[in-house]
Amino acid sequence: MQRRQITLEDGRYLIFYTFDEEAASPTPPESAGDEQAPARVEEPTAEPQATEERRV
């Protein structure tokens, strides 16, 4: 496992984890596809976490 850390424009960190040799998935999972389905983000602001609330 390799990790590469970068700093985003607003100062947050982001870490890429890559796994070269071991266990690269030979076939993509069935339901995966390269095309993007509509992300169904409710607000145009598209903030992933702002939309995550427990609502049971």
Binding site: P29, E30, A32
Partner: peptide, 26 residues
């Protein structure tokens, strides 16, 4: 977990879940 937008953790190969376990650990 994965670059595949339409996937889920359940649909990912077990190798990818293993990689996630390694990332969790880190």
């Amino acid at each position: 977990y994965t670059p595949h937008h339409n996937s889920t953790l359940a649909a990912e190969p077990v190798e990818q879940i293993h990689q996630l376990v390694e990332v969790w650990t880190d």
